[in-house]
């Protein structure tokens, strides 16, 4: 088996009373795209910052190639954020922006050549046309490609992307996603991408991990997980994707979950349709739903959901 590039072990990150990440295990393999989806405020960005080494774990570990992750890994770990405009210095040319990562790592090779290669790979061809332009002289989609070129120039092994296409035009979105997938297939890069957009996961991800209130509550290969979700939260999430209109919508009610007050038992239980409908009662697990925390999903899990009902049904059937 190939070695994991990143291993997250029983990670907890607290901000005061808020348990933003509350027990996460995760492995990212080289050459894979892993999509991290989940509700706003569920801890996705916090988890990504910890992998970058920018946020310190309250407890648990983040290992990058077996060593504790810290900001020194930066040339090997690069970031792409949602808003390309905010990420680019308006007074620098495209070529200076892309070269920045090389200068930080005191690159000894041919800088101009490395920059041109990165721009071409990011689909900005011919690179000479873009080298001397400033960010305001190129389109929004081209700006995001400059960000990707800047992230790729140091030939990182891991790319962390937080909503990389949310701010882009529908028509440009496909091109950027295609580019990312292509880089993964041709260079063995690993990508961990945070998104609200399940269509993006369908488009490029090998695996999907679903977060809810600081935990990964379901993980699996993209097709399996999106075609037949198991956890009630994932099911509800998929039912409200606008294009799955045949399905009956399960709009979750109740207060927005608060990491300062994580419910006892299964953290999803106050909003869970399975418990609310009496199904948990029938399965004989209602007490557990309310009082016993389902086991944390292990990093090695290929397909798993942290839910008593899923377990009960698997045992019965």
């Amino acid at each position: 088996m190939t070695e994991a590039l990143v291993v997250v072990e029983d990670l907890h990150i607290h901000f005061g009373a808020a348990r933003a990440v509350d027990g996460v295990n995760l492995a990212v393999m080289p050459g894979e795209v892993l999509a991290l989806v989940g509700e706003s405020g569920s801890g996705k960005t916090t988890l990504i910052r910890a992998i970058q080494g920018l946020t310190h774990p309250t407890s648990g570990k983040v290992l990058f190639e077996g060593k504790e992750a810290d900001a020194r890994h930066l040339p090997d770990v690069q970031m792409v954020f949602q808003d390309p405009t905010g990420a680019l210095n308006p007074r620098r040319t495209v070529s200076e922006i892309v070269a920045e990562g090389l200068r930080i790592e005191k690159f000894k090779g041919n800088e101009a050549e490395a920059v041109s290669t990165a721009l071409s790979r990011a689909g900005l061809r011919p690179p000479e046309r873009f080298l001397r332009r400033f960010p305001h002289e190129i389109s929004g989609g081209q700006r995001q490609r400059v960000v990707i070129a800047g992230a790729m120039v140091t030939e990182p092994r891991l790319l962390l992307a937080d909503e990389p296409v949310a701010s882009l035009d529908a028509s440009i979105r496909g091109e950027i996603l295609g580019l990312l997938r292509n880089l993964v297939d041709t260079t063995g890069l690993a990508v961990l991408v945070v998104t609200h957009d399940l269509g993006l996961a369908w488009n490029i991800a090998d695996r999907v991990a679903v977060m809810y209130l600081g935990r990964i509550i379901e993980v699996g290969p993209t097709e399996e997980l999106l075609d037949s979700p198991k956890h009630p939260y994932t099911k509800a999430l998929l039912s409200v994707v606008p294009e799955t209109r045949g399905m009956e919508q399960q709009i979750l009610s109740g207060e927005i979950p608060d990491p300062k007050r994580i419910p006892s038992g299964c953290r999803f239980h106050p909003r869970c349709p399975v418990l609310q409908s009496g199904e948990s009662e029938r399965l004989g697990i209602a007490e557990r739903c309310r009082g016993e925390d389902p086991a944390i999903i292990s990093a090695a899990a290929t397909r798993e959901a942290a839910c008593w009902a899923v377990k009960a049904i698997a045992v019965a059937g």
Binding site: R173, G174, E175, I176, G178, W202, N203
Partner: peptide, 9 residues
Amino acid sequence: SRMNPSGLK
């Protein structure tokens, strides 16, 4: 569309 995002040049 699986592993095949569609865009516009």
